[in-house]
């Protein structure tokens, strides 16, 4: 199954977390979240880790990709 992609680049807190929350409520267990700043990365990671997700971070130029699996 492919990962559900959430593009939260250019958005500031709490929008990225709200978008991830919405994606989780749709029943997705495999996410790929794109953010473009450290604050969003920290907030999304804190949110997902607290909900028992295993997360991996890949930093690229201009964007940070957070991969999350239940």
């Amino acid at each position: 199954m492919g990962a559900r992609r959430v593009d939260a680049r250019g958005l500031s807190c709490p929008q990225p977390v709200i978008m991830v929350d919405r994606a989780l409520k749709e029943g997705n267990g495999h996410l790929e979240v794109l953010v473009d700043n450290e604050v969003s990365k920290e907030n999304v990671l804190r949110f997902l880790n607290k909900r028992g997700f295993h997360t991996e971070v890949e930093e690229e130029v201009g964007s940070i990709v957070i991969k999350a699996m239940k």
């Binding site: 807190c13 709490p14 977390v17 709200i18 604050v39 949110f47």
Partner: peptide, 19 residues
């Protein structure tokens, strides 16, 4: 630390986060 007095209350109401 991203300290924010409004965010403190917002995060509790919105996502039950007490950070």
């Amino acid at each position: 630390s991203r300290f924010c007095t409004m965010g403190a209350i917002r995060d509790v109401i919105l996502i039950r986060d007490f950070h």
